[in-house]
Amino acid sequence: MPIGVIINALSVLLGGLIGAFLGDKIPERVRKALPLTFGAASMAMGINLIMKMHTMPAVILALILGSAIGELIKLEKGIEWCAERVRKPVERIFSSKGNIDNQKEFMEKFVGIVVLFCASGTGIFGALNEGMTGDHSVLIAKSFLDFFTAAIFATALGYIVLTICIPQFIILIGLFLSAALILPMTTPAMVADFTACGGIIMLATGFRISGIKAFPIANMLPALVIVMPISHLWTNFVK
């Protein structure tokens, strides 16, 4: 039973619904201050995951190649295109636009939380770990952060935030179901490098959410797909 996956998706759904409903009722100072805290939390989680790195050259190579692939296929632009297609019908259904009219600012914040909710190292590792061991503690811990993050960002972005629970659930349940096939083919070193790669992306996500630097984090996601094969090859043929 994917308890952690379900709770994590529900946390985004409920957080986004509550935040969008309250909107301006939440004081502006809270809406401005808490994203900085969320960004710091994401960076702290990222640093903690990076510390588990086993093979630095493999992780760095995967990150560079993955980012290049993401840029070439314009992954972030694809997410932005999907967000724009979803935003208008959601606004019509709920008769709410949110508080951000600037398209660039809207997309920067939206893509940041999409990656944080759907593709963070914590979420991916947590789903794989739950699928293999039944331990859902990682995803439940992530759910607390996701709930409050969704609520605060929904006050600015509107009801579109709660729709992120759909791709999030699909991605995490897919990982949960495939865990029995994936993890037996991995080694502790490969998992450590995968976790560290996710940590680097979470660190960049924290900078983006905090408004410090708008890293193209969606374009970095292919690194998560190739980091374990590169780690395996590096450990067996180079190191």
Rank of each mutant, 00 (worst) to 15 (best):
G23F: 02
F38P: 02
K104L: 12
I140W: 03
M45S: 12
L61I: 14
R29W: 14
F147D: 10
A151Q: 04
S137M: 04
S143V: 07
E91L: 01
K142A: 08
V30C: 03
L75C: 06
I26D: 01
K104E: 15
K97R: 12
Q103N: 08
K32E: 15
S95W: 11
P27E: 11
S96Y: 13
F94G: 11
K142C: 10
F125T: 08
T55G: 07
I79F: 04
S95K: 15
L75D: 03
S67T: 15
L34K: 09
D135R: 04
N99V: 00
I140F: 03
K104D: 11
L34H: 07
K97V: 05
F148M: 14
M107V: 04
F38E: 02
V90Y: 06
K88R: 11
A33N: 10
A58V: 03
A62L: 09
K25A: 14
I73K: 05
E80V: 01
A151N: 06
L157K: 06
V115F: 02
I100C: 02
K74H: 12
I64D: 05
E28T: 14
N48C: 00
T149A: 12
G23M: 07
G158V: 10
D101Q: 13
H136P: 00
R85W: 12
I69V: 15
G121W: 01
L128V: 04
S137V: 08
M43Y: 01
E80S: 02
F117S: 06
M53N: 07
K88G: 01
D24Y: 08
E108I: 15
G126P: 02
N99C: 00
I60D: 01
K109T: 06
S67F: 14
K88M: 08
K88Q: 10
A141P: 08
R29F: 15
I64L: 14
L139K: 03
K52M: 14
N129K: 13
I160F: 01
I124P: 01
L75I: 05
F153Y: 15
F153Q: 10
M107W: 00
K77H: 09
I60W: 00
L157R: 06
E76T: 03
F110W: 12
M107L: 13
A141M: 11
E76W: 05
I73T: 06
E76G: 03
I160M: 04
F144A: 14
A83G: 14
M56H: 02
F147W: 10
G98E: 03
E105M: 00
N99Y: 12
K88H: 07
I64T: 08
V138S: 05
G121E: 05
I152W: 02
I152Y: 03
Y159H: 13
D24T: 14
L128Y: 04
L157M: 13
I93D: 08
I69R: 10
H136R: 00
E105P: 00
I93C: 06
I93H: 04
K77T: 11
A62S: 15
E28G: 02
S137N: 10
K88P: 01
C82E: 00
P27S: 10
F106E: 05
G23S: 13
